[in-house]
Design a protein around this nucleic acid. Structure first.
Lengths: 264, 264
DNA sequence: TACTGCTATTTTGCATTCAAAATCTCGCTA
DNA sequence: TAGCGAGATTTTGAATGCAAAATAGCAGTA
């Protein structure tokens, strides 16, 4: 009866940590939720766009009932906005939410640092080191997209090392919400170099298992990234302020203009 | 067209801060969600008990569809556990989750302290002072239940002063999840006295608008409460460990045995 | 041509229905 | 009497149906 023991205590790559359905036997609803989340992570749906129930039903091959259930959950998590009688839309990209998002994330990072330093297993630390090496490779090769993905996994791994399910879940959600704004900072080499240097120190603190130190470095890392994003948002805002004098209904769309401000 | 301006900037008492449906026109689903949350706050459903869809449908006068939608959301928030094909149950009281819950809450408290100290309006501070006075009255009169409710509102008010919607929402959820465990500490006068003293210092720091100080006091206040609960949990566990040698399926039910350990 | 108001179509919210799964009932056997 | 199993009943998960709301289309007017 016992499942095979080959479940190594390393960082799993993709998983839908949905603690809501005990047992794990997949209901249609849960698969849908996973599928939708994947779509969001892949940025398949343009932000602000209406979510056509019918279309998605087709795509996933289900009826409207389970789809709508999934959308309600996504709405509760902030990825979707439900307008009564007017359909669901992908939560619009809103520069205003970057601040609160990072402020909140900072608090979680700190807790992650405090607890992961003490609770991470040696295996987990080793796995994080591997990720760190891959991060370095991606950076050297200027594979920015890889870097971003690896970075995501690195921080998720750290969160998981805390053993606090509530923290893990909430951190994951925040990460996913921030994911949509990554274009604000992604392609910029300078910030990436800096970010990697911060990771270096993070890993050091983790290996030293010094909670306060790790907490401080994680929080700071997050804050710096957030500030970099906000700087872009701010410049973007100034830039579009004049343009939008005539053209209504144009909420700061993405364009290749990431970061070139000082980061401190 | 403009609604009346009489919406004073004080702390509102009861509200269902559900940012998920923009606009605010109530859908059945949302009312349901509010109703269910109210039921949970009122502890109307015994923990671990099955949630009879049919019954609740009757009670709320709706069909199963919107009810199930609401349950999915509650499940995502951790109040309900969905067992595929076997119905939903009220998330069982689990002493194991008190630790993670408070650990997480601590991180939020800290952020609340840091930000509320700077962002609270004078009106909000005044409103919190009023609550504080009422808290005092309740304590003096040994109206413990009132105290607990006022305490809930006090901390919610503080959270709202941060102006961070994400923080406000998550804090509210955590508060609600902890609410179910309040019996572990509630009726005990000693902890209440201590708690009130801590509030005194919190309010002082808030009025002085000293972020680090307020953060430290809030975090500490939360930690102490959490520790008090955990102490009860621990003693409860010891106590029932022997009893449960024979009687299976008895997950530490409530009984009048709150706190008498040192709190520090 | 730009705007208003009316009708047709689509989309949404919810109720109902239906098949599959789980639970219960009760007789049978050891 | 305790344990087991086949069938009936209940409950769940999901599809479908239906009324209300919103949207689109279009004719008429200024």
């Amino acid at each position: 009866m016992s499942a095979d023991i080959q479940t190594a205590p390393t960082l799993r790559d993709d998983e839908t940590l949905d603690d809501t359905t005990a047992g794990g036997s997949s209901t249609l609803h849960d698969n849908l939720l996973a599928g939708l989340r994947a779509m969001f992570m892949a940025s398949e749906l343009p932000d602000g766009s209406r979510i056509p129930e019918a279309e998605l039903c087709q795509r996933f091959g289900v009826s409207r009932t389970p789809l709508r259930e999934a959308l309600k959950v996504m709405a509760a998590e902030g990825f979707v906005i439900l307008r009564p009688n007017r359909g669901a839309i992908v939560a619009p990209i809103d520069p205003e939410e970057v601040g609160p998002l990072y402020e909140f994330k900072g608090a979680l990072e700190r807790l992650i640092g405090l607890t992961a330093a003490e609770r991470a297993t040696d295996e987990e630390i080793a796995a994080l080191e591997v990720l760190h090496l891959q991060l370095n490779e991606a950076l050297s090769a200027s594979r920015h997209d890889d870097y971003t993905h690896l970075n995501y996994r690195f921080h998720r791994g750290l969160a998981q090392a805390t053993r606090n399910p509530l923290l893990i879940q909430n951190y994951e959600t925040v990460q996913q919400r921030i994911w949509r704004y990554r274009f604000l900072v992604n392609e910029h080499d300078r910030r990436l170099q800096q970010s990697f240097a911060e990771h270096e120190r993070i890993l050091t603190a983790l290996k030293a298992r010094t909670p306060l130190d790790l907490a401080e470095r994680l929080e700071s890392h997050s804050r710096l990234t957030g500030q970099a994003m906000l700087a872009v948002v701010a410049s973007r805002k100034l830039e579009t302020a004049s343009e939008n004098a005539n053209k209504r209904r144009a909420p700061a769309r993405r364009s290749p203009n990431p970061i070139d401000t000082e980061q401190a």
